[in-house]
């Protein structure tokens, strides 16, 4: 019954900074296991939208409801600070473009993965470490690096570590902000491949912000095109990318290589 409800339901969401608009009148639903790509140029409002969705910014207008693990839809901005922060470190994930923002750069890879487990009360060192080893393997990091700090990792490894750190509590919804930005093309391809596998295996719901339509095509089921803070086109990813209706979307699509 509750499975029919969306996981995340967004209605007329808007965020303005004084006279300047970040984003406005954004509405959509995401169901369990669905991947939504938000695409647009820089300044289109997609990053503002992601920050509001993940409750790091308060919206000026509109509402966001989330289906909690007990099946009840809750207004995320009506949650107490404690509930919201708990949600953020258990049922949600956030993958930053710059891994240094999402990792603790001075503590070991193992502790980076284990932190969320300890935050929710796991108190068995051996089990935490075992889980960390398992997750490092799933993101293709050699278990021998478990006690190294991410400072000594390459950009691609850091990003994979950040993903493991987020997924260790089996979140149901993950926000990603240009997760492949700033990486070499070959590294990007490997990371995308890994992400696609993890998302499918775990049945994750994802909101991914990207300016790269190739990333959107590879990962997402649906796509939302933003311009000047508003959604100008939305639909199934293949449909939108193969047959864009809006002139602006056509322009975007024509300017990238097909994957």
């Amino acid at each position: 019954m509750t499975q029919d409800l969306p996981l995340l339901s967004v209605r007329r969401l808007g965020k303005s900074y004084g006279a300047r608009t970040g984003c406005r009148d954004v509405s959509f639903d995401i169901h369990a296991g669905e991947v939504l790509a938000v695409v647009g140029e820089s300044g289109s409002g997609k990053s503002t939208l992601l920050n509001v969705l993940s409750t790091q910014l308060a919206p000026t207008t509109g509402e966001i409801h989330y289906r909690m693990r007990d099946g009840v839809m809750r207004d995320v901005f009506a949650l107490s600070d404690a509930e919201r922060r708990f949600l953020l470190r258990t049922d949600w994930g956030f993958v930053h473009q710059d891994p240094a923002q999402g990792l603790r750069m001075t503590v070991s890879a193992g502790a980076n993965v284990g932190e969320r487990l300890m935050a929710v009360g796991q108190r068995h060192y051996g089990h935490i470490r075992h889980t960390a080893v398992d997750w490092l393997g799933r993101v293709e990091i050699d278990a021998g690096r478990i006690d190294d700090a991410p400072r000594s990792f390459s950009g691609g490894m850091r990003q994979r570590l950040q993903i493991a750190r987020n997924l260790v509590t089996h979140p149901r919804l993950v926000f990603m902000d240009e997760p492949t930005g700033g990486l070499d093309v070959s590294v990007q391809a490997r990371l995308l491949d890994l992400l696609r596998g993890l998302v499918a295996d775990l049945g994750l719901s994802v909101v991914i912000v990207t300016h790269d339509l190739a990333v959107a095509r590879l990962l997402s089921h649906r796509i939302m095109v933003m311009r000047h803070g508003t959604v100008i086109e939305t639909g199934l990813t293949d449909q939108v990318l193969d047959d864009p209706r809006e002139p602006y979307t056509q322009l975007l699509v024509s300017s990238v290589l097909q994957v």
Binding site: D81, A82, R85, R89, R104, V107, S108, G110, A111, G114, E115, R116, M118, A119, V120, R123, Y125, I128, R129, I146, D147
Partner: peptide, 18 residues
């Protein structure tokens, strides 16, 4: 206030790992 003490265990974890 929110009883978020996971970070303290991260410190202890690091001790043991090292």
């Amino acid at each position: 206030a929110l009883e978020e003490y996971g970070l303290m265990h991260v410190k202890l974890y690091e001790d043991i790992a090292r």
